[in-house]
Amino acid sequence: MPRNNAALAVTLPPQFVPIDEVGIDERVSRFSKRSIKKSSKVQALKLALSMLDLTTLSAHDTPERVRQLCHKAKNLLETMPELPHVGAVCVYGPLVKVAKEVLKGTKIHIAAVSTAFPSGMAPLKTKLIETRQFVADGADEIDMVISRGKFFEGDYDYVADEIAAVKEACGKAHLKVILETGELNTLDNVRRASDIAMHAGADFIKTSTGKVQPAATPQVTLVMLEAIRDFYYATGKKIGMKPAGGIATAKQALHYLVMLRETLGEAWLTPDLFRFGASKLANDILMQLVKEQTGAYQSIDYFSME
């Protein structure tokens, strides 16, 4: 069905790429078997910290809570001032201004979830209004959700055009497109949605909102990374990746970094092209870093909550 808005015309991938689920499982199981110890572990953990989108996305978030989160983003650990700062803080749109105030003068980005997050059930018009508003308020990154209903209806054009329209509304802000893989049921769908999002203009593709189980899994992440690789070969454009939700331990984070390194190579080992969406991960990484420094296993009791 042709769309009337010519400016939003996008090129859909020529064909659908089927995914071998058994092969993906097999490949994924290998990533957790790499031995990363001592100084290489510390280096990887610091990299993971710099890739972190410190997140609070509760319906009951208050400005004070966001201020506290931003403070944590700026001062991860008083005893280790040499640590890198996190990639971004990720908040609901109405709280962008609060975050902006606290993070002024730092290089920490502000990411806002948009487009009727987490359901995406709203008219395109209101989605564009809120996106423009959040960018005007100071968001550096916009995390949008795709219309899963339209996707399952088979109306891929709608999904693609919507992403393109939101991308346009973002202006200079980076656009992350959340596929909500926990609702897409099959890896084939994950691959298809990834291709649609990238061709429609996404700067990043992101697994989940964190509101649906399962959230990020190594399997869907690998499928998305492979989609990014194929897109890079086809167009020369580097698209970023953000697994979000369900990554709570430093060990898991290391497994993801191994997967990233072995699928996309070193060029992607930067916060510009890879992010973790997580709230508990930061403290677990900090606990591991302190453990490496002191030799004693750590307790969450001695780390600030946010």
Partner: peptide, 8 residues
């Protein structure tokens, strides 16, 4: 040593 030093 680990029994005694574990912070948790």
């Amino acid at each position: 040593k680990h029994f005694a030093s574990h912070m948790d």
